[in-house]
Design a protein around this nucleic acid. Structure first.
Lengths: 204, 204
DNA sequence: GTCTATACTCGGATAGAC
DNA sequence: GTCTATCCGAGTATAGAC
């Protein structure tokens, strides 16, 4: 690896760790430079801005983690299997990657107050094949006719939102971190059941 | 109204308007002071910090908007009616109050990177009566046995999350603002059906 | 490519005079 | 209460040496 790459990598890793530890907003570019053992000017030389650095990290994380999800949606599993696998993989991904949840929250928040920039989310929305499957099955009478957008939004909501209100859930249900993870894991069975129930698949 | 109250009120209103227009993060305390025709120091005299000002506004908004929702949950409607009414009222509330959505996003985001402070959410979680009703109906065999926390999280997720990913939905489904509102309105029927379906209420 | 040093802007917060 | 002036931290940028 070239010197250039090595330095870029150092900055990248320092930033990722700090973002994870302290959150994006509470991490300053000076912190990052210090942790990477370089100076501020150099950080600016490689990544023009903190925003850009963040986006780079986010995109990479998304890319790494989305492979499995895309594969599932594009596979030739049955609809039922697809839903079950997608939900499980997605939940596991968020459970194992707190940084990802934190980043998603950052993006969602920004998208409200600022500009779109939701490119990173493409991965969870490459649904052409999945959508086609829904309409095919519908035509064959195997499932109810359904609006694919609604269905996908339902699925994403049920999977993702509980992570966003983690603290609220822990507070109100009076559970700790460990119990929260158990709660989330229970949803791996619950969510597919709910969704498939809605599709009213007669048999699989 | 005293002079003190009048100034406080001016600041409060200016802040609310600006937060709505530009979003919380893109509104500076100097903007607020300017709009309220006072100076920066005075803003800090009344509200010790921007954070505190935000929390005050948020709490008031929540309090105002939560009445209907609490009434529904604490009423003596049937479970089915309760769910239907709750979903409709909640969605209408978010549709009519973009500031609220923006604020909720701010809070959720902060709760990840920073500290809890989710007091404002108490309103949507005063579920004692609702929970009791769920277990009563369950005991009587009218509905399936169910974990009330999961059920409530499902409901909140399905209602709230689509607002959080509004831009993503508009982008991917290729719809405009008006069509997004229609999409959301469709969910007023969809979500209760999904939830009630899960409860498997035999009759109402 | 990497460094020091320096500086400009902006936003939040405060000291101290009136 | 209300003001002016000031401070501090954070992001960004750049000049200039090595």
């Amino acid at each position: 690896m070239s010197e250039r790459k090595k330095t870029e990598q150092k900055i990248f890793e320092a930033a990722t760790e700090l973002f994870l530890e302290k959150g994006v907003d509470r991490t300053s570019v000076r912190d990052i430079a210090a942790k990477a053992n370089i100076n501020l000017a150099l950080l600016n030389y490689y990544f023009r801005s903190k925003e850009n650095l963040f986006n780079t990290i986010f995109a990479k994380l998304m890319q790494e983690n989305s492979k499995k999800l895309i594969e599932i949606l594009d596979s030739d599993m049955s609809l039922k299997e697809k839903i079950e696998n997608y939900v499980v993989e997605y939940i596991d991904m968020l459970l194992e990657n707190p940084l990802l949840v934190s980043f998603v929250m950052s993006i969602l928040h920004r998208s409200w107050d600022e500009k779109p920039k939701m490119d990173g989310f493409n991965y969870l929305y490459s649904t052409e094949k999945f959508t086609k499957q829904l309409s095919d099955e519908s035509r064959k009478g195997n499932i109810k006719k359904i609006n694919p957008t609604h269905f996908f939004v339902d699925m994403l909501s049920l999977i993702t939102f509980p992570f966003a209100i983690k603290l609220l859930i822990m507070d109100k249900a009076e559970i700790n971190e460990r119990e929260f993870r158990t709660f989330i894991r229970e949803r791996k069975k619950r969510i597919p059941r709910l969704l498939i129930n809605e599709l009213k698949i007669k048999s699989d």
